Amino acid sequence: MNEIRIERSTALKQKPDPSTLEFGKVYTDHMFLLDYSSEQGWHDPRIVPYGPLTLDPAAMVFHYGQAVFEGLKAFRTKDNRILMFRPDKNAERLNVSNERLSIPQLDESAVIEYIKALVSVDRDWVPTLEGTSLYIRPFIFATEPCLGVRAAKQYVFAVIMSPVGAYYKEGIHPVKINVESQYVRAVRGGTGFAKTAGNYASGIKAQEEAKHDGYAQVLWLDGKEHKYIEEVGSMNIFFKIGGEIVTPALNGSILAGVTRNSVIRLLNDWGLPVTEKTISIEEIHQASAEGKLEEAFGTGTAAVISPVGQLHWQEHTMTINGGETGEIARKLYETITGIQNGTLPDSYGWNVVVAE
């Protein structure tokens, strides 16, 4: 790994009140940049003051969408350590996305060191209030100016960071979700398993319509038969049906969530094995009608665990666990957040210490 060049900001920003933090509205003093060219490979790692990026109007990211990203968090513990939760999984998944988008691979261990260095420089931005964290957004985009349809020969890998508040301001609570019956997010053979910008752009319209109708999220069905459950907005989804915990199997159109992986590991260790399989929306509706749909919850970096209190599918409304947070969802939320913030022991070695 090349030595990281550090240019410190001479105009440090005033840090926001941690009790008023929103998601992705305020950014730290610095950012990380790394360039790629076909001649030099990845080169010139540097931490510089946060600021605008200058791109040629013909930069290929604008025209052909070669852009991938990740999302992870850093936490401040009560004894003032700074921890990152499972950054190795994010670095690994970043390269999965790179492969699908024909973007050059990155050294995963170097990616972790780059992020650690940036968090260390801006460590004062990791908030102290319970439930808050520093959200970390690594991303890669094509910068070569060319209108030919092909993979670019120049890229930038960047990392920016934003202090964020507790996802649940008043404690964990269930959400209402609309099962999408018109739009399609992804198909097998496409980019559904990659964390690429276009996947999220294609989901915005359905999300807007769902919010207009009073729903917090969209539950996507498969793009071919439009009957099999895939994922919820930016989260994976789990169900407890007749005592069995099930989640859609990774099939090439579903993102392999880091929180999803953590949840499966925990549940297995608690003697609550998870079955990964194809699940139809008809099965969920039938289970609800028979009183067997006991819990449902989404998993993702932002919310960690998001209990589902109601599912709306066509003319059917399914209320789950009386619209209350289930026992398993609550235990998972408390366990994962406890590991992340250092109040519970990390017996899995998931945390990476940035500073002590």
Rank of each mutant, 00 (worst) to 15 (best):
G148S: 09
I160K: 14
K205M: 04
W270F: 03
R185Y: 00
V274R: 01
P174L: 01
A206E: 07
A158K: 02
G165R: 05
I160E: 10
G165V: 05
A186P: 09
R150K: 14
F139P: 14
F239L: 06
V274E: 06
V232H: 02
A201S: 04
R188E: 05
F139R: 15
Y168V: 02
T132L: 05
E231F: 07
K205I: 06
T143I: 08
F141T: 15
L255T: 09
Y215R: 00
L250R: 13
I229H: 08
V156D: 13
Q182R: 09
S234E: 13
S262V: 13
F157Q: 12
R185F: 01
H173F: 06
M161D: 09
G243T: 07
K211L: 11
Y228L: 10
P145M: 12
A197H: 04
N178V: 09
D222N: 13
I172M: 14
P138F: 03
K227W: 05
T143H: 07
P248S: 08
P273H: 11
M235W: 11
Y167K: 05
K227M: 09
L221S: 04
G257F: 10
I204A: 04
L272Q: 15
Y168W: 10
N178L: 11
T247I: 10
L255Q: 04
D269Y: 08
Q217V: 09
F193I: 06
E276P: 08
S162G: 14
N261Q: 15
A197Y: 00
S234R: 08
E225F: 12
R137T: 00
G131L: 09
Q182M: 00
A210F: 01
A216G: 05
N236V: 10
I140G: 03
W220V: 05
S234K: 08
M235V: 12
Y135W: 11
D269C: 00
K205F: 02
V232K: 03
I245F: 09
F238P: 03
G203L: 04
E225P: 11
M161G: 09
L134E: 11
E231T: 05
G198I: 02
Y215K: 02
N178M: 14
G243K: 06
G189Q: 03
G223F: 08
F141I: 15
I140S: 10
G203D: 09
S181C: 01
K227V: 04
A201E: 07
Y168F: 15
G171Q: 00
E230Q: 14
A166F: 02
R185D: 00
A142K: 14
N261D: 15
G271F: 11
E209K: 12
E244W: 00
W220K: 05
V175R: 01
V232Q: 00
I140Y: 11
Y228H: 15
Y228M: 12
G242D: 11
N268G: 14
A142Y: 14
R137E: 00
Y183C: 00
A201G: 10
K211Q: 12
G257C: 03
M235E: 11
P163I: 07
T259L: 04
I172H: 03
D269E: 15
E180R: 04
G203R: 04
K240P: 06
I136E: 10
R137Y: 01
E180C: 07
N261S: 15
G148D: 15
L221M: 08
G190M: 10
T191H: 02
T132Q: 09
Q207M: 03
K211D: 05
G252R: 04
G252P: 05
K224H: 12
K205L: 08
T247K: 10
K211N: 13
G190W: 07
E225W: 06
